[in-house]
Each structure stands twice: as structure tokens, then as C-alpha cells.
Simulated scan of single mutants.
Amino acid sequence: MGFLSAARQGRKDDAELGVGVWRRAHDRFGRGLDRFHQMLEGIEDPEVYDAMVPLANGLADLLPAVRAVAVAAQAVAPSTGTDIPASEGAWLNEVHRELSRSGNALATAAEAVAMVRLGMGEITAVERRVLAVHEHVEHAAALLADRGA
């Protein structure tokens, strides 16, 4: 990505995601996704690599959903700081919690890939962590959809 396109994307992100908690949750997910793919690139065993590629693709497919949740949450309750905007019944706290958990689960999935890469972990551990990422993203989207956002 060139400088001008990065600047344009940054302005678009500022407009859609704001600069608060929703933007940070989205960006953390993106960084976790990058880390997962970096760990994947170091796997030398072709069979293991081939088993991991669909997991990585599935995670990459979640990024638009994470962005959609963050954009919708920003539209409903703009955030410019570190505090989650107030909501009746604290439902926005739950949306943010699920987005945060998805980023954390993605980071642990990347760690699991690193362990497989070092020959000290199992693919099933990566699969479990990837499943958790999917569940957290789906739950965040469902929470937002339940509120009509």
C-alpha cells in the first residue's frame, strides 16, 4: 500500500470507525490476523501448512464482519476516547467485550500456530482457538443485530 492510499484508508477509517474503542478493537483484530499469517509463513511441513491455510482464510474472511460491527457500533454510539459509550443495560459493553475477546482469541491462535511451527503444538489446538475467534465475532454481530443496529 502506497503512502497516498494508506493516508486515504486512514481517513476512511477515521470517518467510519472513529478514534475510540471501536477503532482500537478493529485494529487489534487486524494486527492479530497479520501475526497469524506471519506465523503461518514459517511452517515448513507442507502437510501442516496445507491444514492451516483454510483456518487462516476463515479468519481473514472475518475481518469485514469485525469492521461491520465496529462501524455499526461507532454509528450507534460514537467513541473518541477509552471509555465504552453508555447504553441501556450496558449492551455496548458486551459488544465491545466480544470484539476484544475475538482479538485476544486471535492472538492466542497465532501463538498456537507458533507452537505448531516449533513442533511443540497440535493443529487441533489452533482449530479450537480459531473456532473461539469465530464465536466471539458472531456473538458481537448478534448482540448488535438484536439492538437493531
Rank of each mutant, 00 (worst) to 15 (best):
L55Y: 07
V133D: 05
A110L: 08
D13M: 06
G30T: 11
E88Y: 08
E44S: 09
L40M: 12
M120P: 00
T124G: 11
R35G: 06
A149N: 11
P54T: 05
A109D: 03
G18P: 05
D14K: 02
A142L: 13
A70G: 07
D34R: 15
E44T: 07
E41D: 13
F36A: 13
E127V: 09
E44P: 00
T108F: 06
A75R: 05
V53Y: 14
A141K: 14
L33M: 14
D27A: 07
D50S: 13
L17G: 06
A73F: 00
L144A: 12
V21L: 06
R67S: 08
A90F: 11
A114K: 05
D61P: 04
A112T: 09
D83I: 00
A7H: 09
E94V: 02
M39A: 12
A109I: 07
G30D: 15
D146H: 13
R11I: 00
R35Y: 08
E41H: 14
A105Y: 03
M120H: 14
R117A: 04
R8L: 02
A51D: 15
D45P: 06
P46S: 15
F36P: 00
R129H: 02
F29V: 06
G119E: 04
A75G: 07
V69T: 04
G42K: 15
M39I: 05
R23Q: 10
A125P: 09
L143R: 06
H134T: 10
V71R: 08
P46G: 15
A65E: 13
Y49D: 10
G121C: 10
R8Q: 01
V137Q: 04
H37L: 12
M52S: 07
G58M: 08
Q38R: 15
D50L: 10
G42H: 10
P78G: 12
G89W: 06
A6P: 00
A112W: 01
M115C: 04
D34N: 14
A72K: 15
P85T: 07
L62T: 06
S79Q: 01
E41Q: 13
A107Y: 02
R101M: 08
W91S: 11
D146Q: 14
D34E: 15
A112G: 09
V95G: 07
A72I: 09
A51P: 15
V19P: 02
S102M: 02
V66I: 08
S100Q: 03
A60C: 13
Q74N: 03
A86W: 12
R35L: 12
G148F: 05
G58F: 05
A72G: 07
R23E: 01
M115K: 11
E111L: 10
Q9W: 03
A70H: 09
P85C: 04
R129W: 02
R8G: 00
A141V: 07
G58K: 08
A60Q: 14
E44H: 06
T124P: 05
A15T: 01
M120Q: 11
A110N: 11
E94D: 11
I123Y: 03
W91N: 10
A68F: 05
D146T: 11
Q74R: 09
A68S: 11
R8D: 00
G119H: 03
V137N: 04
